[in-house]
């Protein structure tokens, strides 16, 4: 790739130009992160007057805490659910749109719109639709003989948050899948057609393997999204309930720290989350930047 090199004659100017970004990163990112790490080693008395340095006591307590382990499992279910549902749906849509010759743009535009909706708004939207008292979907389900109530049924609650979180992500995945599908040379599918493979076989033996770089990239992005970016959706719908059944890690950090005012353990949780982000980022850069090779 051609790179444009700018030569600065002043030594200060480059730093000056970088300053806004650096300051924002330092104030809103590095400083709170450092605070969280520091906090995770402290225990505060109930009135918030005195901090005691307790080394890894907060972490040790977390590991033994059944609520925390439950939250880990909930997060895992939730992330896998969101990723599989949103990627599956968007791949299906992308394949359909790719087959349409006319008005491809029209469909693409429509399918991208949900991405512009704020997570809290989309959470609210689904909350209304699935609301046991006023929602349309429980009303329909009632006629089908299913008594939907996410406020008492843990399974219902999980389904609700997964759908609400996946819905928004479908657009994003869809765009990547469409681009991926269009980069598969047409002659390959034609060659496969002559080689006696039907449409379904062509998809699974030729197109899907060639999409693997896109799929892998999206898998990491979606897991990251589901784990860290879904706070507003949970907050607007289930608030972690019923009985911890949708209390994912990010939500638990908030609930323990800011609702339960138990700052030490909450900070420890957020540090663990930070480590998970770091791990996922490494995976992304190490493997995705090198692309899935075929």
């Amino acid at each position: 790739m051609q790179t444009k090199r700018t030569v600065f004659h002043s030594r200060i100017l480059p730093y000056f130009l970088l300053a806004p970004q650096l300051i924002i990163t330092l104030i809103f990112f590095v400083w709170p992160a450092a605070q969280a790490i520091w906090q995770s080693f402290l225990r505060q008395d109930p009135f918030g007057l005195k901090d005691t340095f307790v080394w890894f006591a907060n972490y040790k307590r977390l590991i033994g805490d059944p609520d925390y382990l439950n939250s880990l499992i909930v997060t895992l279910t939730f992330s896998v659910g969101v990723t599989v549902l949103s990627m599956g749906l968007s791949l299906l849509f992308a394949v359909c749109v790719n087959r349409v010759i006319r008005s491809q743009r029209f469909y693409t535009t429509l399918l991208v719109w949900p991405y512009a909706v704020a997570p809290a708004a989309s959470g609210l939207l689904w909350w209304f639709m699935f609301n046991p008292s006023i929602g349309i979907i429980p009303y329909i389900l009632h006629f089908l003989g299913y008594d939907w109530n996410y406020r008492v049924n843990a399974g219902d609650a999980m389904v609700l948050v997964i759908i609400a979180a996946a819905w928004k992500q479908v657009s994003y995945n869809f765009l990547f899948f469409v681009a991926g599908l269009q980069s598969v040379p047409h002659s390959l599918t034609e060659a496969a057609a002559i080689d006696g493979a039907g449409p379904v076989k062509r998809f699974w033996t030729i197109i899907f393997p060639l999409l693997s770089p896109t799929t892998f990239f999206l898998a990491v992005i979606n897991i990251t999204y589901a784990m860290f970016d879904t706070f507003p959706i949970i907050d607007a719908t289930t608030e972690g309930g019923p009985s911890q059944s949708t209390n994912v890690l990010v939500y638990k950090v908030y609930a323990d720290g800011f609702v339960g005012l138990n700052l030490g353990p909450s900070a420890a949780q957020s540090v663990i989350l930070m480590l998970i982000v770091v791990a996922l980022t490494i995976v992304q850069f190490r493997w995705i930047e090198r692309k899935v090779q075929y």
Binding site: S187, E190, A191, A193, I194, A197, G198, S212, Y294
Partner: peptide
């Protein structure tokens, strides 16, 4: 008749080998 059932084989300009 579908291409697969025409008893033909084709060599493409860009070879169209399955890269994976």
């Amino acid at each position: 008749v579908e291409p697969a059932d025409r008893d033909i084989a084709m060599v493409f300009q860009n070879y169209a080998l399955y890269p994976h």
